[in-house]
Design a protein around this nucleic acid. Structure first.
Lengths: 341, 341
DNA sequence: CAGTTTTTGAGGTACGTAAATCAGAAATTC
DNA sequence: GAATTTCTGATTTACGTACCTCAAAAACTG
């Protein structure tokens, strides 16, 4: 049988109360006694029954998700997934809350993080913006002892506990490799549409893409990066313009979430030879475009998996349990029209 | 606050004991009383606290995994993942057990399933073989009220509760699409190496592959399928032979688990132009071959995800809870050398 | 050594459910 | 209407942990 607190007490020759004091870090235990108890815990291989503990505490995990109020399908989908988790959350003793912030706005994110410190939830997940003040705010949240998970876009050197999202450099490399192979390896011109170079995920994708192109497909020329701020109208205008100015474009890599604008532009502009298009995030728009051949490949991160992973990780951190690294690795899905789910 | 059994009792005007009788299907409750209690449950939106219930029952979930004692990397990896889950299982009130059976042996699988009926675990997961007697055995397990999950290979029309594995037709289609695009769309000859056409997943992969080639890449000619029985030596010999007989081969699709032999053959035979190679399952061998350029793409199913998914599904079934379909869909991973994890 | 502080023990209640017992009420049968 | 059977209520214990109180023991202080 699994050892319980009673077994620890008996084995260490102390009372239940003392075991409880040691287990929960309460004061009033001599150093030697504490060590005796800890020895018994280690010897018997005791692990706290988290379910029973939560029952006794009648604990509910309060988690806060800070999400940018972006008008793109991916962020909307991410919000939907969090709301889906909220619907299931009461079953798991969780109270998940969403806080919306303006997109690409470091000051607003900092304010939201500072509010979190006051509310002291059991954990926070947020889509990071990579600036020094955000980093400092994260440091304050961490100092308050609140577990932190970055979602979709990371903040590597900051005090976050875990990053839930894809390896964006690998994603960019994959896009570069597919682009090079699909284009057949000759000379060609490629355009890149990003959201903002302020967020790390977009920067990293570009970096991976450019690296592979440089190393493996030197015949490809990459045009200056377009920053569409993940805004449909702006992205459409930028793509229309670049296609007009560079009719020789053979490939487009859309590494942000401005796909609605991109697709509209592609459908408006008539090209002599259709460009090879690789985009990120499978949404209703990119799915349709993939199905009808406007887009050739979509790299995707599964928002549902990310949200569930973030919650699992936050819960584990709140309980002081280890996370299963392999389970929490978010994979890069590659969709062609032939493997659409 | 979440309603408890006490709230139900009060609201229905009955005692706790009666609520318990209704909730757990115990006899001795009049039809009208039962309906009154069920009405209160529905009205208050009561959901049983599974953690508390399991604590009270001091329940442990006994799950049995029936795995073929194959010596290929994938099945070995699958077994490792189950053993990994066993290591964590006591934390979650689970007792997972592995039963090994000889590979491709329907009679042995039937015997294992019938043993399961006697042991009455809380759930079974097994790698299906598609024969009538296995189907009948599954029916007997289901009749005993034991939740059943098929793993990796399905048994669609049988009484299983859930299938944990990839969509093999979509996997084959994806391989066909990548092959067609990587080869540039012109005329070319492609070889296919399978394990056995008697195995359902291999048949489905071939079907998907051939369909896409026929529809989208009519310039590709597919040579007669090689059956390597997932045996390294046989696969190597077959590949050597086919390359010798058809020096014009531009692509090879390996849809089974005979990759070790394939890779050895590719390294021995010197070709004027290297063939495009697409294989299944990321193992130490295929990973190395992908890294050094012998293989161009690997389609993978994540064994760890499959095992964890199977356990989650079995647990949900045992608790009478719904499964989150999106969470349990096993995805087809596509690996190029640029996105190796 | 008396007085003070710190440490420890013993015991209880609670969390939400399961499962059991036993007595009493209600419905059914003869 | 008495005897029997079928329901129902009241109460208790248990699961493993958290958290509280009170008293007693042990360790320090001066």
């Amino acid at each position: 049988m699994k050892p319980t607190v009673h077994d620890i007490a008996r084995s260490a020759g102390v009372s239940l109360a003392t075991v409880d004091r040691v287990l929960n870090g309460r004061p009033g235990v001599r150093r030697v006694t504490r060590q005796r108890v800890e020895g018994a815990i280690a010897e018997l291989g005791y692990v706290r029954d988290v379910a029973a503990a939560n029952l006794a505490k009648s604990r509910t995990y309060a988690f806060t998700f800070i999400l940018p109020a972006n008008d793109n399908s991916f962020m909307i989908g991410l919000g939907d997934e969090v709301r889906g988790a909220i619907a299931r959350s009461s079953l798991e003793r969780m109270a998940v809350r969403i806080v919306n912030v303006p997109p690409f706005d470091p000051a607003a994110l900092v304010a939201a993080l500072d509010t979190v410190v006051l509310e002291r939830p059991a954990g926070v997940a947020f889509v990071a913006i990579d600036t020094p003040d955000v980093r400092a705010a994260v440091q304050r949240v961490a100092a308050a002892g609140i577990p932190i998970v970055t979602l979709v876009s990371d903040l590597p050197e900051a005090a976050r506990d875990h990053y839930v999202g894809i390896d964006n450099i690998a994603a960019g490399r994959t896009a570069g490799s597919l682009m090079g192979r699909f284009l057949g390896g000759g000379d060609a011109t490629v355009a890149v549409l990003s959201g903002s170079m302020l967020v790390r995920d977009h920067r990293e994708r570009l970096e991976g893409f450019a690296t592979v192109v440089r190393e493996q497909f030197p015949g490809l020329a990459i045009l200056p990066v377009l920053e569409g701020r993940d805004d449909p109208a702006l992205a459409e205008a930028l793509v229309m313009q670049v296609l007009e100015d560079n009719p020789q474009i053979a490939g487009i890599y859309s590494l942000g979430a401005g796909n609605r604008g991109l697709i509209q532009a592609l459908r408006k502009v008539s090209m002599t030879r259709r460009a090879m298009v690789i985009a990120h995030e499978l949404t209703a728009y990119t799915r349709a475009a993939l199905a009808d051949g406007t887009i050739d490949a979509v790299l995707n991160q599964d928002a549902g998996h990310e949200v569930r992973s973030a919650i699992r990780v936050l819960k584990a951190k709140a309980d002081g349990l280890p996370v299963i690294a392999a389970q929490e690795r978010i994979r890069i899905d590659i969709f062609l029209k032939d493997n659409l789910p």
